[in-house]
Design a protein around this nucleic acid. Structure first.
Ligand SMILES: NC(=O)c1ccc[n+]([C@@H]2O[C@H](COP(=O)([O-])OP(=O)(O)OC[C@H]3O[C@@H](n4cnc5c(N)ncnc54)[C@H](O)[C@@H]3O)[C@@H](O)[C@H]2O)c1
Ligand SMILES: NC(=O)c1ccc[n+]([C@@H]2O[C@H](COP(=O)([O-])OP(=O)(O)OC[C@H]3O[C@@H](n4cnc5c(N)ncnc54)[C@H](O)[C@@H]3O)[C@@H](O)[C@H]2O)c1
Lengths: 224, 224
DNA sequence: TTCACTTTGTGCCTGCGTTCACAAGCGGTT
DNA sequence: AACCGCTTGTGAACGCAGGCACAAAGTGAA
């Protein structure tokens, strides 16, 4: 019951693999050949035992007494994350944030290709963006189906997010990255990740509050 | 040893409180008076038992047989997150992403006031932004100290992030939100949260990969 | 081959987070 | 006042994640 099937990688590990991948790419650029778990862990800001356990889910990649071959490890992580094939994506809601995302080169360099930028505002449709033009949201299904798009990014206002999400899912998208502050309801086979910036700020606010409460005295605020 | 001091709220709970707060604000706007844990949990997309346990860390707020008073609960969560006082913030790196963040009204409406927008590029300094102007990074310490800034947001390229971070910390900032894909090293008393969009995409990619592997047959890829 | 040294891969323990399930408590009704 | 139905707050059980510590496995030298 506690056995983990080979190929089963814990969610927390997957999130860190992306970090290791970035660090390793930096090491490749610096022509580093091998790296120990201790070194890699320090750069990535994690515990070395945790790093080794993370990597062990990908198989036995390291060499005892030596460390990991940087190139081999990088390839192994990339393939585990499914990054050996480029992923096609669409971006919906080309406002303030959408423009910033569209202009970000980091997605393309990491294997993500945006094949369509959509907006509902007629005033925006047709406007040039990157090496393309903003399309009418009406064309969404067509583009998604013809390109076999797998990831949809939502950067519309919260009110529109659920509707856009449903159109994406109906068209065949099975992964969604949501920037709108709203909870999306999706079928089981669809993955959603949200980026909630206001929530991030509020979490920081909580810790600020906590720190400042501790300064004056040793007491905690009592209810009443 | 397993007792949790009153006022001690688990990290996972804090993250969800921000979500509940947003939902509750929506309910207040819709003039809803009371809400049960079941209803609130459904809207927030979580399990109702988890929601009740989360709220129980704030004290006994609900009324058995009835539910929670929407206004009271909202206030209680806001105060727990330290949102009764406005938090002053600075934004460093006014490029692509920085402009989007600066133009976002959601921060101000949730209690965060940006008192300075900084960039190192002389060509950008002086440019109007929101109701202010982009300042030279040289003025960072002055502004942080004079306003008692508590949260610093970094939207510079990765190479500059650690340096900017150190300047923020030295000036007195104790919470940092980092958009650059880099690991920041900070003293113990400083909190860092990172928003790694490329990593989010890669996590989705992993799940896409996983789903497509499962389609063809029941086997898992074996290590060659 | 044997030995000394290095670093991986992992068994085991501990602690956090999630979920179930139910006693306790409250409002409304008779 | 006594009862009923509803909902909260939480004890207890469970599963996931983190980290220590060490045996296993490799390299290189003698
Ligand atoms: N800008 C930020 O820094 C920031 C930060 C945090 C969260 N967000 C969230 O991200 C989302 C976008 O923010 P923004 O600042 O870019 O807003 P925005 O208003 O500038 O842009 C939203 C865009 O979505 C388009 N749109 C509206 N309904 C649509 C629909 N049904 N289909 C397609 N497009 C539609 C609008 O025409 C507009 O161009 C919002 O939900 C916001 O809360 C933004
Ligand atoms: N744009 C996006 O959608 C996006 C997405 C994911 C991650 N990011 C990350 O966010 C960061 C910013 O992205 P961007 O697209 O806005 O880049 P950008 O190049 O458009 O902007 C970076 C800005 O930082 C300024 N800067 C550089 N060094 C500085 C310093 N030492 N002090 C102050 N300012 C300095 C530059 O002058 C520039 O204006 C990058 O690290 C990027 O990887 C951006």
């Amino acid at each position: 019951m506690s056995e983990r099937r080979p190929g089963e990688i814990p969610e927390a590990t997957v999130a860190r693999l992306a970090v290791y991948l970035r660090v390793l790419t930096g090491l490749v650029d610096a022509s580093t050949v091998t790296v120990s778990s201790e070194e890699l862990a320090t750069i990535a800001g994690v515990n070395s035992a945790k790093l080794r356990k993370d990597l062990s889910y990908l198989g036995s990649i390291g060499t005892r007494g030596v460390g990991y071959d940087v190139t081999v490890l990088r390839e192994k992580i990339a393939s585990s994350l499914g990054l050996t094939q480029r992923r096609t994506c669409v971006l919906v809601g080309i406002g303030n944030l959408g423009h910033a995302l569209a202009g970000y080169s980091g997605f393309s360099s990491r294997g993500f290709t945006f094949v369509g930028y959509f907006d509902a505002d007629p005033a925006r449709v047709g406007e040039p963006i990157v090496d393309s033009r903003i399309r009418d949201i009406a064309e969404l299904e067509l583009v998604v189906k013809s390109h076999g798009v797998s990831i949809g990014v939502i950067a519309t206002p919260a009110e529109a997010a659920q509707t856009v999400c449903e159109r994406l899912v109906d068209a065949g998208v099975t992964s969604i990255l949501n920037f709108a502050p709203s909870v999306l309801t999706v079928p089981d086979n669809v993955d959603v990740r949200k980026v909630d910036l206001a929530a991030e700020m509020q979490i920081l606010s909580f810790h600020e509050h906590r720190k400042s409460r501790g300064l004056g005295n040793g007491l905690v605020e009592s209810v009443g």
